[in-house]
Structure formats: C-alpha cells, structure tokens
Design a protein around this nucleic acid. Structure first.
Lengths: 163, 163
DNA sequence: TGAAAAAAAGACAAGTATATCCACTTGACC
DNA sequence: GGTCAAGTGGATATACTTGTCTTTTTTTCA
C-alpha cells in the first residue's frame, strides 16, 4: 500500500475530532463517524494519545478530544505517529561503494518519498476542513453535517472528481 | 511502507538486467548483483516475465534477460507488475453522499498517489542508468562495473547525497 | 540418449499488519 | 462509597507479505 490502513484510520479519526470539537467523542461515536471497527479504533488512537495529538478521558462523559490546534496539525504528524515514513538514508544493498550517497534508483525512490512527505507536511487538518468542495470530509450522518448543500436531487452535478 | 519490498526487488532486478545486456543472467548472478535472496528472487521475477518485461530461458546458459527497451520501460510499469498502485476511486467509507467524488481528505491522499504515479511513469530505466552521479545504480562488484571511477583511495569525496 | 544446468511450480514457514475480545483500571455521578 | 460508563492493556485470531525448500519441467551439451 501507500499509507497503511492504520494511518488512514488515524487521519479519519483526527479529521472527525477536528470537525466535532466541544465534547469528547466516545469510541462508539468515532467508530461510527469514521467507519472504523469499534474494536480496532482504540489501538489506532493510542499512539496519537501518547504523542499528544489527542487526549482521552475515561469514565462517564469521557472520550477522545483533539489536543492540538488543527491549524498547525499536519497530516504528516498524524501519519508519523502511527506508521512513520522512512526515508531511504543509506544504500539498501549495503554496498560499501555507495556509503556516501544513493544510486540513481534509490535516489529517485527517496525523492518520491520526500515529495510525499513534503505534501503531507504542508497539509493541515484545518486546511482539509476548509477546502470544502461540497463534500464534507468523511461523514454523512450525525453531528458534523450541518449543511451538505445538495444542489439538486439529481446526481453528478458537482464535477469534482470521478476517475 | 511505500512501495513493497517485492517491488523494490523487481526494480533492482530490472536495473541490473538493463545494465547487463547481452547474455542472460542466472538467478544466482541476479541475486548477487541485487542482493536479493536467491530463493525469493524467482518469485519476484515471475510476474515480470508474464507481463513481457523480461524473458527467461531454461537450461544451460539460460537465465533472465530484459525483453523491453529500457528507453521506454518505466518504473511504474515494473511496480505495477508486482504490486500495483491503487488510486482511491471511491469513498473508502462507502458513504452514499460521497458517491460522486472524494472528500478533501481522500482527495488529498489520492492526489498524492497520483503524483507518485506520475513520477514513476516519467522515470524510465534508461533514464536511471544515464543519470549517473558517480554511483552506478546498485552494484559494486562484477559484471556491470566497468569503471566506477574512484577519485582517490580515501572515502567521502563524492558529495552527492547524505541526509 | 543421458547428464547437468537452469527456471517453474508448489508446499510450507516466519513475520508483520490488521482485527477481535476480554479482563482491568479510571473517573463521573448518584 | 457504589455503580456504571468509558478508555487501557494484553492475549489471541486472521490474513497477507516475505522468505525458504523441494520437486518438476525444460533445455543444452557431450
């Protein structure tokens, strides 16, 4: 894959939390909102808690809430909590002659990783919430959907993405 | 990960074959040149054979040889033989409201995949061989190393990449 | 034709990612 | 303080990726 399933789940959860500020979200609520299995989600969230991205509160009225300003919380940070991106630093073949650099193949691969990393670093959670193209980040139902603003009952008017 | 181990191995093997045209390379030779386990390599190469990227010849003096012009053989093709890149086409949460497009989160993720795909499509094997920065693509030893052109017996003079 | 070299094919083993479940702890509220 | 809601941690299951090994098939060459 490209980013792990777990990282994708973590991103969903953080986006959901950013969309539902105020009261803490229980595992149930998060699981429903992000369509992640309720029994797996806690495992995904724990590293985010340890990293200080979110806080968890036990007991009645507990749940998870975001502990960072979405405005300077990047996608990269979330991904790195859960499934760190590894750059290629040394020759994977361990050739002594390549000790000081990477050959064209691995340089190209590392550059690609770097580009991805850069993009993830530049994308903030708040940015994602702002760039609303008619489709609110994950979620349909419940809490966060204030107005989805359907243009007409017919479909396919939005012309955003398709392929 | 980012590209699978298997895909990385496939790229190494193809680069090696492009560097060693002429007589077919046995699994042993390829394994040594690419530092891939000799018992795993055949598994990696088989999909490439089926896809017509390389041909294999059994028996004495057999081995693998590239069956495509490195000039228009892209990294993307190799990767796709072995571990295809999947774009995000539909909402992974299967929200009906997102049927016609992707939300900002998944749009961003898909755009990142697309950028990667584009880069891989634009990079040819021949291109990698040309862009020789002092380090020949994988390989040290043996066959393909005609002149690695060591500047001095001392190390670390090359100043190409390091971080 | 026979022997040896080589890839192909398939069974199997190990490791890692994903997912589930349950017993335990923490905390809020009565 | 008791009770119940909620997260935590650990054990276990399942699936997929990576890796090994053995047998079979193909091919060349003597």
């Amino acid at each position: 894959m490209f980013v792990s399933q777990t990282a994708e789940y973590a991103l969903r959860a953080v986006v959901w939390l950013a969309q539902n500020p105020g009261e803490p979200q229980t595992t149930q609520q998060l699981a429903e909102g992000t369509q992640v299995s309720v029994s797996y989600l806690p495992k995904v969230l724990q590293p985010l808690g340890r990293a200080g991205v979110l806080t968890s509160q036990r007991g009645i009225n507990g749940g998870y809430s975001l502990d960072r300003d979405p405005e300077d919380l990047s996608v990269l940070e979330i991904v790195n909590c859960v499934d760190p991106i590894h750059r290629i630093k040394r020759c994977p073949l361990k050739l002594e002659s390549h000790a000081g650099g990477l050959c064209p193949l691995h340089r190209m691969l590392d550059d690609s990783i770097a580009a991805l990393e850069r993009r993830f670093a530049e994308t903030t959670i708040a940015g994602l919430l702002r760039e609303d193209t008619g489709l609110k980040p994950l979620c349909n139902s419940g809490a966060a959907v204030v107005s989805i603003q359907l243009p007409t009952p017919k479909m396919g008017t939005r012309s955003d993405a398709s392929t």
